[in-house]
Computed example of a mutant assay.
Amino acid sequence: MKWGLLGGTFDPIHMGHLRCAEEIREIFDLNRIIFIPASRSPHKLDAEITSFYHRAQMVRLAIEGNPSFSFSDVEDQRAGKSYSIETVQYFLDKYLKSIEIYFILGQDAFQAIQTWKEWQKLLLLCNFAVLTRPGYENMGLSGALPEESAAQFVYDEAVGGYRGPTGQHIFFRQVTFLDISSSDIRERARQGKSINYLAPEAVRHYIQKNNLYRIE
């Protein structure tokens, strides 16, 4: 079984998230993509983020009807900040390594990987699927990792990825770039502007029904 883990604040989830997930599922022939909202992001202030409950509900609505997409609240079940290494370890421990994990993230996030908790260990626990986009320079490993860390990974032409000492790979794959951002959706909602076709209809209705992102 090959599973993709896609984390993020999802505030709110939008069509860009869904399209990237679908393309990565297809590229790597994944059995499942698990959407994992961060409960308490170590990179953002809690005051800046909509409650986990609302973000989780929007993710559930967005993926409803797609049998390859599922939801996990694992990061809300833990106290403290939401760290990716703890999430990956949770799935490996729970399923006793009967699954092959592809950790999905954008290239900008990968470039900042050294700011993550225990990032060296994380890179050796699972495969990484780094999303690139047209016009965004693919700097490879040297642009994100120190020289000594990058040297642990050797490019494997057979799979088109960098193989690490534990057999896990770091892949760079270009996906369709939809210029949609959660921050733009929030700002449009605050101003009472249309967010049609930026987020799934069910998510748009949820935002309106619950008066999210509007300034009282």
Rank of each mutant, 00 (worst) to 15 (best):
residue 50 T to Q: 08
residue 87 T to D: 14
residue 145 L to S: 07
residue 65 G to S: 06
residue 41 S to P: 15
residue 127 N to S: 02
residue 145 L to E: 09
residue 111 Q to I: 07
residue 195 I to S: 01
residue 155 Y to M: 15
residue 192 G to E: 02
residue 107 Q to Y: 13
residue 52 F to N: 05
residue 75 E to W: 00
residue 170 I to A: 05
residue 144 A to I: 09
residue 5 L to N: 11
residue 133 R to W: 07
residue 20 C to L: 10
residue 56 A to P: 04
residue 174 Q to N: 04
residue 28 F to V: 01
residue 63 I to V: 13
residue 179 D to L: 02
residue 174 Q to W: 04
residue 192 G to N: 01
residue 153 F to P: 11
residue 43 H to P: 04
residue 172 F to E: 02
residue 150 A to P: 10
residue 159 V to S: 15
residue 194 S to Y: 03
residue 208 Q to S: 08
residue 140 G to W: 05
residue 75 E to A: 00
residue 108 D to N: 12
residue 129 A to I: 08
residue 51 S to T: 13
residue 77 Q to E: 10
residue 167 G to Q: 07
residue 137 E to Q: 11
residue 32 R to I: 02
residue 15 M to T: 04
residue 118 E to K: 13
residue 31 N to E: 12
residue 140 G to Q: 03
residue 202 A to L: 03
residue 30 L to M: 04
residue 42 P to H: 15
residue 209 K to Y: 06
residue 85 I to H: 15
residue 36 I to T: 14
residue 95 Y to I: 12
residue 98 S to T: 13
residue 188 R to S: 01
residue 166 T to G: 08
residue 144 A to L: 12
residue 67 P to H: 10
residue 3 W to M: 05
residue 58 M to F: 12
residue 142 S to L: 14
residue 21 A to W: 09
residue 147 E to K: 15
residue 204 R to Q: 10
residue 165 P to I: 06
residue 118 E to G: 11
residue 197 Y to S: 05
residue 197 Y to E: 03
residue 158 A to F: 14
residue 106 G to I: 06
residue 120 Q to P: 13
residue 11 D to G: 09
residue 80 G to L: 05
residue 57 Q to P: 03
residue 199 A to L: 01
residue 25 R to D: 00
residue 83 Y to N: 13
residue 139 M to A: 08
residue 19 R to W: 00
residue 13 I to M: 01
residue 50 T to F: 00
residue 152 Q to M: 14
residue 207 I to Y: 11
residue 169 H to I: 00
residue 102 Y to M: 03
residue 35 F to N: 13
residue 83 Y to P: 11
residue 79 A to W: 01
residue 31 N to T: 11
residue 207 I to G: 08
residue 17 H to M: 10
residue 206 Y to C: 01
residue 176 T to P: 02
residue 101 I to R: 11
residue 9 T to P: 14
residue 166 T to D: 00
residue 172 F to Q: 03
residue 178 L to V: 09
residue 91 F to H: 12
residue 104 I to M: 11
residue 126 C to Q: 03
residue 198 L to N: 02
residue 110 F to Y: 12
residue 216 E to D: 07
residue 42 P to K: 15
residue 108 D to Y: 08
residue 104 I to H: 13
residue 182 S to Q: 02
residue 205 H to P: 00
residue 191 Q to Y: 02
residue 91 F to G: 10
residue 108 D to T: 11
residue 207 I to K: 09
residue 71 F to C: 03
residue 207 I to D: 04
residue 53 Y to K: 14
residue 80 G to E: 05
residue 191 Q to A: 09
residue 159 V to Y: 15
residue 30 L to N: 06
residue 151 A to D: 13
residue 35 F to Q: 11
residue 96 L to V: 15
residue 94 K to I: 10
residue 26 E to K: 14
residue 136 Y to C: 06
residue 19 R to Y: 00
residue 116 W to N: 15
residue 18 L to R: 02
residue 71 F to V: 07
residue 173 R to N: 00
residue 116 W to D: 11
residue 51 S to G: 09
